[in-house]
Nucleic acid binder design. Sequence first.
RNA 1: GCCGGUAUCGUCUAGGGGUUAGGACACGUGGUUCUCAGCCACGGGACCGGGGUUCGAAUCCCCGUACCGGUACCA
Length: 485
Amino acid sequence: MIPRVRFAPSPTGYLHVGGARTALFNWLYARHHGGTFVLRIEDTDTDRSSADMVTGILDGLRWLGLDWDEGPEVGGPHAPYFQSARLDRYRAGARQLVDEGKAYRCYCTAERLQAERQAAEARGEGWRYDRACLGLSAAQVAAFEASGTPHVVRFRVPDEPTGFDDAVKGRLDFDGAHIEDLVLLRSDGHPTYHLSVVLDDVDMAITHVIRGDDHISNTPKHVLLFEAFGAAVPRFAHVPLILGADKKRLSKRHGATSVTEYSRLGYLPDAMVNFLALLGWSPGGDREVMTRTELVEQFALDGISGGNAVFDTEKLDWMNGQYIARLPIDELAALVAPELLTAVPDAAIDPRDPWLHRLLELLRPRARRLTEFAGQARPFLVATVSYDDEAVKKHLAAPDIAAHVAALVEPLRTLEPFDEAGVEAVVRATAAAQGIKAGALIHAVRVAAVGRANSPGLFEVLVLLGRERTVERLERLLTFLSSRT
RNA sequence: GCCGGUAUCGUCUAGGGGUUAGGACACGUGGUUCUCAGCCACGGGACCGGGGUUCGAAUCCCCGUACCGGUACCA
């Protein structure tokens, strides 16, 4: 059997990391088995859904590289993929169950139900719908209809136990007596989630439902509905939730929660995918950094762990650093160029420039996020660097430091060729001649070159800057030092 | 309250009737070195508690505890 899986977000918010991981697991499962990944938008809650949110979710999936085979924009044999466009189908489904005696109309007021529920809660008890409308006579129904009393359609939950074999949790059993007669169709004629998911999964021939843990207690209801519609019950896999560092459900106060936000913060989609895949799933060995292809090859439902997982930003950062280190340099340049331009608007940035590539090569071992490049690259892009106070205090304190730096200017001006080995030889020889440690001179020159106390290796830095700018910056430092005293 | 789930280093996890309980992130120490980062080496750090089954339990079973989810005319 070729699996058909689906990701069915409701557009009541952006694509958050939990949803993204659910989508990823579905995608990995589909790709691993050569199946079909369906994207469906669950927008039956019209009050809370919006078109903008749909766009946001689509963009998030695209950014992660999770392409869908059927769904919005690409269409497919089971279109439309928006629940809001299938309302008639849900009504027909509800009617069918009513006709078959598997569901019934309920005229109870929301007020009454709410009062019952509150009263029960006050007593410290639970409350399920009391089936007041289950045994209505034809005359009673006619009376309600004649008076125009609105009604919902409720599913008649059988009193027997139900259960299913979850691919992650194992056998799960529920007592029908604990499940209330859930509403299928609201009084405004809109379906509830339970009706629409099941009908969609039936119509779209979904074979595997991979979704969040929070749906476990809905699943027996869904199983019952699949059976009521005479459809095959798909296989379920309930994946644990993602929590914040405080072990609470991930929310805004944990910082970034939308994948779009992670893209803005300088994370690479591949890193995000790799990290998310490992949150709650393991290939079984010691593998951590894996390509998309490897993830697809390795992915299996039985590798999903049972417990909730804490979203560890530190590890994400590390993972991102791994991907930054491995990214082809021209791709890195293309990604970073816009940020460099923002930081230094008048810089001449060409993503294909070998000089830029060299700069990024020097910078990337110390970068964990793309957004860090602009700051680190700045001294190399501006005409004149500004000196960091701390760096000046620390490395330019020696009284005759100016003389030592000055001694470097001529040798560097005439050095041929101006390469790393040559620059290093000159710097070390000068330090020796001046009777100071090479490190002291290096630190001073670093401040002259980049204005800071740290940077990539100084000789690489100077060569990258080139002879002219190197000399220029040394002289500028000398001017600065003389003006200071 | 009721229903369901989960429990291995701080975090993500591997493993699983007999192991020195493995890896990764983070942390600490040392090395490389001109700084920072990186890289390399080393180190500290875990089977929730109690019973039971068994020659032997972290692993299987039960109870407890904690945490999570659900308990809607939300999804």
